Each structure stands twice: as C-alpha cells, then as structure tokens.
Amino acid sequence: MDFRKIFAAGAISALLGGLAFAVPAQAAPVTQANTSSCQIIKKDSKGLISTVCFEKYNSKGRVKMSVHDRRADGKSAVGWIQNWNKKCWNPQGSQTTKTCYFDLTAGISVEVVACTGNYSTKKLSGCGPMMRFWI
C-alpha cells in the first residue's frame, strides 16, 4: 500500500472541502467522509439488514449515531465505532431506530461500521464495510 498516494488523496480532499473519496484497504472497502453520512450499511443478497447514520454533533468531539434495523431476522442492528470500541445497539426490532451519543476527542478520525448481533450476549454476527470520519 502506497501511503504517499493516500496522504496526497487526503490533502486533495481537504483542499476541495472534504469531498468523499475511496481509500485502499486490505480487508474491506474504506470510504473517507467528511463529518457525517447515512451510507453506512450492512447488506446481503436479500438487501439491507442495518443502516447507520453518523454525524459530528458539536466541535468538542460529541458524535451522534442513529442505528436502523431493516430486517425482522431476530438480530439487533448495531453501529460500531471500531477504533473507540463504542457500540450503539438497537434491540427494539425491525423498522426501528435507536440514537446514541458519544463523547470522543475532537480533531481525530473515527472508523464506523454497521453490524448485526445478539443483544443479550453482546456478540456481533457480521459487519459491513467501514467508513472513516473526521470529528
């Protein structure tokens, strides 16, 4: 992986106002976003399973994550900030949304994924591609 290309892409994006761009990843696609997106998804061949909206809530590092369960499959939808190990569980069932707030550190990047899992055991059963945000 050529980190000079990734850095150059990031610098160009910053000059262009934080437009989204793809960053090479080894395990799963990584999408670079500015400070918010509702495009964080977990899906399979039958369609969407869970979606997560993530946004910077204030300039002090507070973030808002809304997790929407899109399938009646007995699993909970989960939004996961991987590099902070913060999870927002939605155990309320299909077609419901749960919103969580987290206090993180302003000026850093966070890695967010949409997942499903077992709420009672707090074990994840799978996640979609990761998106990176600057807060």
Rank of each mutant, 00 (worst) to 15 (best):
M1H: 15
D2H: 13
F3L: 14
F3S: 13
K5S: 15
K5T: 13
I6M: 05
A9G: 15
A9N: 14
G10P: 08
G10L: 14
I12L: 08
S13F: 01
S13E: 03
L15I: 10
L15S: 13
L15F: 13
G17H: 11
G18D: 03
L19I: 09
F21E: 06
F21I: 08
V23A: 12
A27K: 15
A27N: 13
A28H: 11
A33D: 01
A33T: 10
N34M: 00
T35D: 12
T35S: 14
C38M: 02
Q39T: 00
Q39K: 06
I40M: 09
K42T: 05
K42R: 02
K43E: 03
D44G: 04
S45A: 05
S45I: 01
K46Y: 03
K46C: 01
G47L: 03
L48N: 02
L48F: 10
L48W: 13
L48E: 06
S50H: 13
T51L: 04
V52C: 06
V52D: 11
C53E: 14
N58C: 04
K60Q: 10
G61M: 05
M65R: 10
M65T: 05
H68F: 11
D69Q: 13
R70I: 00
A72T: 02
G74S: 00
G74Q: 02
G74K: 09
K75Q: 07
S76L: 04
S76T: 11
A77D: 05
V78L: 01
G79Y: 08
I81D: 01
I81V: 14
Q82V: 14
Q82W: 02
K86E: 08
K87P: 05
K87E: 09
W89P: 09
P91D: 08
Q92V: 00
Q92L: 15
S94R: 05
S94Q: 12
S94I: 00
Q95W: 10
T96M: 07
T96Q: 03
T97C: 04
T97H: 10
K98Q: 15
K98R: 15
K98L: 01
K98C: 00
K98H: 07
T99Y: 02
Y101F: 15
F102V: 02
D103E: 11
L104I: 09
T105C: 01
A106D: 06
A106F: 04
I108A: 03
I108Y: 12
S109K: 14
V110F: 04
V110Q: 01
E111P: 02
V113C: 03
A114T: 11
A114Y: 13
C115H: 06
T116D: 02
T116G: 01
T116M: 01
G117L: 00
S120I: 03
T121V: 15
K122H: 10
L124A: 07
S125Q: 01
S125F: 01
G126K: 00
G126A: 12
C127P: 14
C127A: 05
C127M: 02
C127K: 06
G128N: 07
M130E: 04
R132F: 08
F133E: 08
W134G: 07
I135M: 09
